[in-house]
């Protein structure tokens, strides 16, 4: 399994990162940004399908027929589920259509994280492992990679040291939390049912905290990926014309997803 993962995911990612790094004059921060944009571009059909599926589901849940079923079978959960599934079939909706594309993206996130960490190789064992992954076409003169980008060392958790302030400020972590909250709020359409709405609110709370924790704990390169990926997700979503900017302002009634 490890060998398949390396061959199919990790090796192409490491070598693509190194190739871009070489093209960009040995700037690993820029290489991560460009690589993230490419990954977003390649996975756009999946993201788009996920967005469409979520939107269709939301439209269905707003429909009169769906609401009627909820009322009619509210005391018979098994029947309710059966009727819901029937309705999904009738409308041509795959109830897992929203999360399958999301699931497919995880190997990419994990592969990218491993690729960043292994490429930066700040200890002998990691560098030895990197040697096993590099294609012959990649010039070995690139090694070791220059891990500094702006004020950050991309191989370690980021903290901005400001003279006079005794603790380092985790700027990237803050950016990850803000951009994750933004992208979750903007790209998750409001749902008519209270339970669904609760879920959306929890997603908007926990996703930024979870990714913020990763950003605070793990290499800054991963946090940089999260920030760029979140921003590009919002841009992609906005390009499809479905962003409801009002959903970001608490207390303001949402306009709902626009078709």
């Amino acid at each position: 399994m490890g060998a398949i993962w390396d061959t199919a995911v990790l090796n192409p990612m490491i070598n693509a990162l190194l190739y871009i790094y070489n093209l960009l004059g040995n700037n690993f921060g820029l290489a991560i940004i460009i690589f993230t944009a490419l990954i977003r571009l390649i996975t756009f059909p999946l993201t788009y399908q996920q967005q469409k599926s979520t939107q269709k589901m939301q439209e269905l849940q707003s429909s009169k027929k769906f609401q009627e079923i909820q009322k009619k079978f509210k005391s018979d959960k098994a029947k309710l589920q059966e009727e819901q599934m029937k309705l999904y079939r009738e409308m041509g909706i795959n109830p897992f259509g929203g999360c399958l594309p999301l699931l497919i993206q995880f190997p990419i996130i994990i592969g990218l994280y491993q690729a960043i960490i292994q490429s930066l190789a700040d200890a002998p064992l990691q560098l030895f492992q990197l040697a096993q992954h590099i294609y012959p076409a990649i010039p070995s003169s690139l090694i070791p990679l220059k891990s500094h980008f702006l004020w950050m060392d991309l191989g370690t958790p980021e903290r901005l040291i400001i003279p006079g302030i005794p603790i380092g400020i985790p700027v990237l972590t803050i950016l990850v939390v803000i951009t994750t909250w933004m992208s979750t709020k903007l790209t998750t359409p409001p749902t008519p049912d209270s339970q669904g709405s609760q879920m959306t609110q929890m997603m908007a709370l926990y996703m930024p905290l979870l990714l913020g924790y990763f950003a605070y704990t793990f290499a800054a390169g991963l946090a940089l990926y999260f920030v760029v990926s979140n921003l590009l997700q919002v841009v992609q979503y906005a390009a499809t014309g479905k962003v409801d900017w009002r959903s970001m302002i608490p207390g303001l009634p949402s306009g709902g997803a626009r078709a």
């Binding site: 589901m57 005391s75 994990i110 339970q195 704990t217």
Partner: peptide, 28 residues
């Protein structure tokens, strides 16, 4: 408050999040 069960796709999304958290932690 409606008594319908959580839509399957929303449950799935949470599962996906948990799997992601575990996997990213594991690869650290």
């Amino acid at each position: 408050r409606m008594s319908n069960p959580k839509p399957a796709f929303r449950r799935g999304r949470w599962l996906v999040l948990l799997v992601a958290a575990g996997l990213v932690s594991a690869c650290s």
